[in-house]
Each structure stands twice: as C-alpha cells, then as structure tokens.
C-alpha cells in the first residue's frame, strides 16, 4: 500500500523538488503551501506522515503540530523542516510532539531516509 505524505511548505521550488524525489521512491505526495490548506486537507483525509516547514503563512509548523496532536488527537509522525538558527522553534515543536526535524540546507536523500525511518516505526 502506498504511503501518503503531506508536504506543507510555501517554497514551491523545494516542494516540487521533494515531490519529485519522493514520488520517485513510490510515495503518494500531497503538497500544500499554507496553514489553511493544511487544515482543509486534514479535515478530509489523514496522511501517513506530515513533512512541514516551520515558517508558513497563516499557520506555522508549531501550530500545525499542536493542531494535530491536541485538536485532532492524531499520532501520525511529523517531521519539521527548519532554517538554520531556528532551533528554539524546533525545540517548541518537539515539546508539542514533533517526531523529527531537518535543517536547511538539507539533502533530499537525508529527508527521504528520515521519512522512511518514521514510517517504518
């Protein structure tokens, strides 16, 4: 069964790059560019894993984690993508229930390995 991955990032180039890479690996990738779209998507379906940027319009990565863990009460793995020097937010995300994080610039292969690891748990 194909695993569903929700990619939430406002950087279209990076998202398309990751989408291309993850699709190549056989994952079903859905991409959203802001917090509203994330909410909409989550109200309709539940992915196997969420990969979200920490900085997004309308809805930040931390809020997303909080929303998923506390409101939706979902236990799906969440991987946070953060830019360098944003470690405090990452820490907050971890406290709220994020499973892993990658820091920009990152290798798409590294992210793929992390996703795979989380999905195999």
């Amino acid at each position: 069964m194909t695993k569903k991955i929700l990619l939430a990032d406002d950087d279209q180039l990076l998202v398309s790059l990751l989408q291309f890479r993850l699709k190549k690996e056989g994952y079903q990738v859905t991409f959203v560019s802001n917090g509203k779209e994330v909410k909409e998507y989550l109200s309709k379906s539940i992915p196997d894993i969420i990969v979200s940027d920490i900085m997004m319009p309308y809805f930040s990565g931390i809020e997303l984690v909080d929303f998923v863990r506390n409101e939706l009460k979902l236990n799906i793995p969440i991987i946070i993508i953060s830019s360098a020097g944003n470690e405090e937010n990452v820490l907050s995300a971890f406290e709220l229930g994020a499973n892993d994080f990658v820091s920009k610039p990152f290798s798409p292969t590294e992210l793929l390995l992390r996703i795979t690891k989380e999905l195999n748990k």
């Binding site: 950087d11 180039l13 990076l14 790059l17 920009k104 610039p105 990152f106 290798s107 292969t109």
Partner: peptide, 15 residues
C-alpha cells in the same frame, strides 16, 4: 534565480 534559491535549501550531492 531558481537555481540560486534551490542552492540555499539543499545540500550534499543535490547541491
């Protein structure tokens, strides 16, 4: 511009 933007976000072999 696209390549420059991507260059900031990726690392390793892709970079």
């Amino acid at each position: 511009e696209v390549l420059l933007d991507l260059g900031k976000d990726v690392s390793g072999k892709i970079q």
